[in-house]
Design a protein around this nucleic acid. Sequence first.
DNA 1: ACCCAGGTGGCTT
DNA 2: AAGCCACATGGG
Length: 278
Amino acid sequence: MKKTKLIRINDVKDLDLTHTFECGQCFRWVPAGNGAYAGAAGDKAALISLEDGTLTIMATGGDEEFWRNYFDLDTDYGEIKAALAAGEPRIAEACRYGSGIRILNQDPFETIISFIISQNNNIPRIRKNIESLCRKYGSPVEGSEELSRDGGTVYSFPAPRALAEAEVSDLADLKLGYRSGYIKASAEQYLREGCPDCREELLGFHGIGPKVANCIMLFGLRDTAAFPVDTWVKHIMNDMYGFGMNDVRGMQAFAAEKFGPLAGYAQQYLFYYYRDRK
DNA sequence: ACCCAGGTGGCTT
DNA sequence: AAGCCACATGGG
């Protein structure tokens, strides 16, 4: 039996696992009792808890450096929240509400496929779709049973090749709907051209438009200036700031002016705050 | 039976 | 450039 790693990180600030795992940026973590979360990042399964500023990670892979980076622990979120509120005071309440949100540094390919699936979809179903995809096209993670919520095997996120070689009809059988073709085409392009590293390149992928590209930039490629505008953010910007529901350009310009390179954080605090009270 | 969900591609003005 | 609308699926 393979031994799982135990990693402890002390003095962790501005982190709440519920805020971070359930704010809509990731789809593979589930509550595992007593505030802990079980799930996976790429091909690594883990069981994670946080108590008195000590983050405890039991994982099948990844060293401390990997998980520090995953949780973005070297970024000062207290400073970010203060700067956001200084630029636009009305965001302060949202920052307080989601005070333990951190923007995870997720695997780019996983982020690409996950957010292609997210389009015109809702979060519970996105999670189911991704779980199905991992079970069929991912690999069982060795040693994951003792870390999962129910003792079951955790599957890795599929490799690019596995999805590039998939049959569209088989993807459709997983209830991925019309996104099945997008998934295969994007996996093929990723395999052929390598990892995209900018917005323009992402927009060249079949099934990736402006909104999904911004999510991938923010959650997968560390571009914290990216400000994804989805149906919720449209409502927020309409309610809070009076933008027309279709004035996406105006919303983007507002975010760039008020928040600049911190716009992505602002978007996430607003999204979580607003979506949670409905 | 409708409308909606972390929208996009394609076709028509 | 801007305005429609089909696209799968499941929940309210």
